[in-house]
Computed example of a mutant assay.
Amino acid sequence: MPENCVVCDKPSKRTQKILTCGSCSAVHHLHCTNLSEADLQTLEDLGKSWICLTCTSDNRSKRRDDTPVGSPLLARRPKALMESSDGMLKELLQRVTDLQDGQREFERSIKAELSSINRTMSQWQRTIEEHTKSIAFLNETINSVNTKTDSIVEETKALQKRINYLELRLSATEQNSLRNVMDIHGISQKRDEKPETIVCQMASVLGVSLTPSDIDYCYWVSVRSNKNAPSVQHLLKVRFLRHNLVCEFLAARRARKNLSAKDLGCDGNRTIYIDEALSTFNRRLYSAARELKKQGKLKYLWIRNGSIFVRKEDGGRRITIRCEADLETL
């Protein structure tokens, strides 16, 4: 006859699964033990017996291991071991306390550092703002200066053009005042001989009709061929009352291939040259043109009526030199 379940006190049926306690052999319905069929299958697979809750509670009560105080392990701990554990626990607690204090000190240090960094960053921020304002002011000043500089440059260019124009006008006026003047090179100065006498002798040799009354003035001028020349040369500057006399002298000198001081009864055998007198500006241009000719950049260089002319090669066009810009184009 089937036994009743100790939990629900009902008999077990053939269709119901039952469990028998391995300690007290009490019968239990499977659904009364709160176990599943999978749990039952696991017990069978492991070959383990099932113990009911009543037997499990009785065993714990007998062993007195259901409370911490009554645990057999604690009951058997020696006093020395307990004291050692207490010391270790105190040491651990002290270390934890030290770590906590160190952490708090570290946090205070970090906060102080952060506060210092924040103050420094604030100072830098203020400095950067001040520098930004200074840079902006400097940029405005520079822009203003650049604007004024551009204006000054334009004014300077206009003034330079004006100066060049006035310089040309002044040179033209000075050159016009020298249209009756010529320069004679290659004659040695004599103390007792009058310059007018030499000019009249030269006119006689060249076949030019001239009397002392045709001469306005005549005097010696000391010159150097260049700044580094050790010796000083002398030229005879003559001003006539009529411009055609200058033209006649120049034409007669060009017609005569050789003319020296000896032909005039003077000491030496130096070649005599006759040139038109040039203004200071034209004389500077003529000197610069001669340097270009020495460098081989010009083939011909001459003066006519106070104007400077050049040719770069045979058969080339005649170029009038009026200012330094004309020389730069060569």
Score class of each variant (00 low, 15 high):
residue 11 P to W: 07
residue 15 T to M: 10
residue 16 Q to P: 03
residue 17 K to H: 00
residue 24 C to F: 06
residue 30 L to T: 00
residue 31 H to T: 10
residue 32 C to Q: 03
residue 41 Q to C: 05
residue 45 D to R: 14
residue 46 L to T: 09
residue 54 T to L: 02
residue 63 R to F: 09
residue 63 R to Y: 00
residue 72 P to I: 09
residue 74 L to K: 05
residue 79 K to W: 13
residue 80 A to M: 10
residue 81 L to P: 07
residue 87 G to Y: 15
residue 97 T to F: 14
residue 98 D to H: 12
residue 100 Q to I: 14
residue 102 G to P: 00
residue 105 E to M: 03
residue 106 F to P: 02
residue 115 S to N: 14
residue 115 S to K: 15
residue 138 L to C: 15
residue 141 T to S: 10
residue 146 N to C: 14
residue 150 D to Y: 08
residue 150 D to W: 07
residue 150 D to F: 07
residue 153 V to P: 00
residue 154 E to L: 12
residue 165 Y to S: 15
residue 167 E to C: 02
residue 170 L to M: 07
residue 175 Q to L: 04
residue 177 S to V: 01
residue 187 I to H: 00
residue 194 K to H: 10
residue 197 T to D: 03
residue 208 V to W: 06
residue 209 S to I: 03
residue 213 S to P: 00
residue 217 Y to R: 01
residue 218 C to A: 06
residue 219 Y to V: 14
residue 228 N to C: 12
residue 234 H to T: 04
residue 236 L to T: 06
residue 244 N to P: 06
residue 253 R to P: 09
residue 263 D to A: 02
residue 264 L to N: 07
residue 268 G to M: 13
residue 270 R to P: 01
residue 276 E to R: 02
residue 285 L to V: 07
residue 289 A to Q: 02
residue 304 R to A: 11
residue 309 F to T: 10
residue 310 V to Q: 02
residue 313 E to A: 14
residue 313 E to R: 15
residue 314 D to E: 13
residue 318 R to P: 01
residue 320 T to L: 07
residue 324 E to V: 09
residue 326 D to L: 05
